[in-house]
């Protein structure tokens, strides 16, 4: 179907429309909102590659987000490395951490909930270490010096940040679509659906999973690095806290796990919903989040295959299935 497996022309079209948004004279409130949606979408896209396509359900993508963010920040603040190089290094190191965690877990044969829990534990270990280690600034956190200049990856205009985030999300959209069409994508889905059968058919399961988690981690690390450059401040709870692991998987699953557009759609939907409930809530704190929780449950009840699934009823081809 069109939305489940969008043609490149559609992807380019969507990206072009989105790229045009700042030109409509949107206020910074909207741009700031959209930027953050894109960061979450990017983190979700990373999660989606391993979790949605490959069925490797991670609760610990905060590990990659945090490594990307801290690497970018530390290289600039402590070693005076150029921000753009730091950005690249953050992605590379995030990917490496993904590879290491993947190697340990996949070699031990961890799947389903077990894989989920071990990734959660890795993220927590990193959080505790980041909170204590001097190089991360410990509990005081790390502040990237405010020095607005394109060479520093800091921009006066919110629109530029928006475009950079959009470029990254767009690149992953296209990469994702290409993977779907290549053998690698087919292997991933095969592993998700039935790992033993995939192995019997000659798929090098470990290698495919490791490639997937490394790429997945790289994408989520990019989201972390982008966060660092935008907010210019990190502490252990921000970088490695469970919130981002949850945001990443929530965006992907609500949008439609294992689909190209799922994470972007999911991130927009969840954060749009968050803003709307905020507007609708009264004086009593918490009411807006109660509504948010209820709507989240309703969305799952009525769109069990993600929002994309609503538009592709009957198309069982790439449907994510349970894996316990």
């Amino acid at each position: 179907m069109l939305l489940r497996h969008p043609p490149f022309a559609l992807l380019i079209g969507i990206l072009t429309v989105l790229a045009g948004l700042p030109l409509l004279g949107l206020p910074n409130t909207a741009l700031n909102f959209l930027f953050f949606v894109l960061v979450i979408a990017l983190a979700g896209q990373g999660w989606n590659l391993a979790g949605g396509y490959g069925g490797q359900f991670s609760f610990g993508h905060a590990a990659f987000f945090g490594v990307g963010a801290y690497t970018t920040a530390i290289l600039q603040v402590r070693y005076g490395v150029n921000a753009w190089l730091g950005f690249g290094a953050g992605i590379a190191l995030g990917s490496f951490v993904g590879f290491v965690i993947g190697s340990l877990s996949f070699r031990a044969g961890l799947r389903g909930s077990y894989f989920a829990l071990v990734t959660l534990a890795f993220a927590e270990v990193l959080r505790i270490l980041a909170n204590a280690a001097p190089i991360t600034g410990g509990a005081a956190g790390i502040l990237i010096k405010l020095d607005v200049a394109p060479a520093n990856f800091q921009f006066a205009s919110r629109a530029v940040f928006f475009w950079i985030a959009l470029a990254l999300v767009g690149a992953v959209l296209i990469l994702n679509r290409m993977i779907e069409q290549r053998r690698f994508g087919a292997y991933l889905v095969a592993i998700r659906e039935n790992e033993a059968a995939a192995r019997a058919l000659g798929v090098n399961v470990l290698a495919v999973k490791l490639q997937a988690i490394s790429l997945s981690a790289a994408i989520t690390a990019a989201a972390g690095a982008l966060y660092a450059q935008y907010f210019l401040y990190l502490d252990a709870a921000i970088a490695f806290g469970p919130w981002i692991s949850v945001e990443a998987l929530l965006a992907a699953i609500i949008g439609g796990a294992g689909t190209v557009l799922g994470p972007l759609l999911g991130a927009g939907l969840l954060h749009g919903l968050g803003e709307i409930t905020k507007l609708a809530a009264g004086r009593v704190p918490g009411i807006d989040l109660v509504v948010y929780g209820i709507v989240l449950i309703l969305v799952v009840a009525f769109a069990p295959r993600g929002v994309i699934g609503l538009f592709t009823k009957g198309d069982k081809g790439g449907e994510p299935t349970s894996h316990g």
Binding site: V246, V290, Y292, A301
Partner: peptide, 27 residues
């Protein structure tokens, strides 16, 4: 009923429940 017996949906429903309960108690 809300999760249709699907693992990842159960996860989301319980997540939604936790947000609801925690903030309900806050309110």
């Amino acid at each position: 009923p809300a999760s249709h017996g699907d693992d990842q949906n159960i996860l989301l429903v319980t997540l939604g429940l936790s947000i609801l309960i925690e903030n309900g108690l806050l309110a």
